[in-house]
């Protein structure tokens, strides 16, 4: 399976995957298709997908556990804020993540909040080759509300 590298680890080698991600072709930028049964799974897969675009997660050791919290007026804003927070940590602290745990999404007075623990380590140039240069996650065509029977399935366009 030559494209296995582009698949989420959950998706590898399985016939039917309840959740996962895969990069999608987009001429100017990069697309990340993400699917999951529940909202938390969706957000986790999106974060894993983005992390894989930044570098090979198999090379990331879990040396640090960082709590991350973001808010959004609606779910779309929450998702964009979540992914841009991961990009920000990569840029400002050089952090690369391999896993995201204890992800909780709650409704608040102002919309939604997300809390999670990100597991990873600061980039070590000798071990972590640079992947895509992602500037930001965009709102282009993003709709989370439209959940089908099998769950969520959406494509996030990343500005590169």
């Amino acid at each position: 399976m030559s494209d296995a590298k582009g698949m989420g680890r959950e998706a590898k080698g399985m016939g039917r995957d309840p959740e996962g991600f895969e990069p999608v072709d987009h001429t100017a930028d990069l697309g990340l298709r993400v699917w999951a049964e529940g909202l938390e799974g969706l957000f986790r897969q999106a974060a894993l997908g983005l992390s894989q675009l930044l570098t090979d997660p198999a090379r990331i050791r879990v040396a640090r556990r960082l709590p991350i919290e973001v808010t959004g007026a609606d779910l779309e804003e929450l998702l964009v804020s979540w992914l841009n927070e991961i990009l920000y940590r990569a840029e400002s602290e050089g952090m690369l993540f391999a896993e995201f745990q204890d992800l909780r999404i709650e409704e608040t007075a102002g919309g939604y909040s997300l809390a999670a623990v990100a597991l990873g380590e600061p980039r070590d140039e000798s071990r972590h080759p640079l992947g895509a240069a992602v500037k930001a996650a965009t709102y282009h065509g993003l709709e989370i509300e439209s959940r089908s029977e099998s769950g969520y399935d959406l494509t996030i366009i990343l500005d590169t």
């Binding site: 016939g15 995957d17 309840p18 999608v24 298709r33 699917w35 065509g141 399935d153 494509t155």
Partner: peptide, 16 residues
């Protein structure tokens, strides 16, 4: 859900 991915891509293309 093998064609999950395809489906979405196709949906997007169709939308376009």
């Amino acid at each position: 859900m093998k064609d999950h991915g395809r489906g979405s891509d196709a949906k997007m293309m169709a939308k376009r």
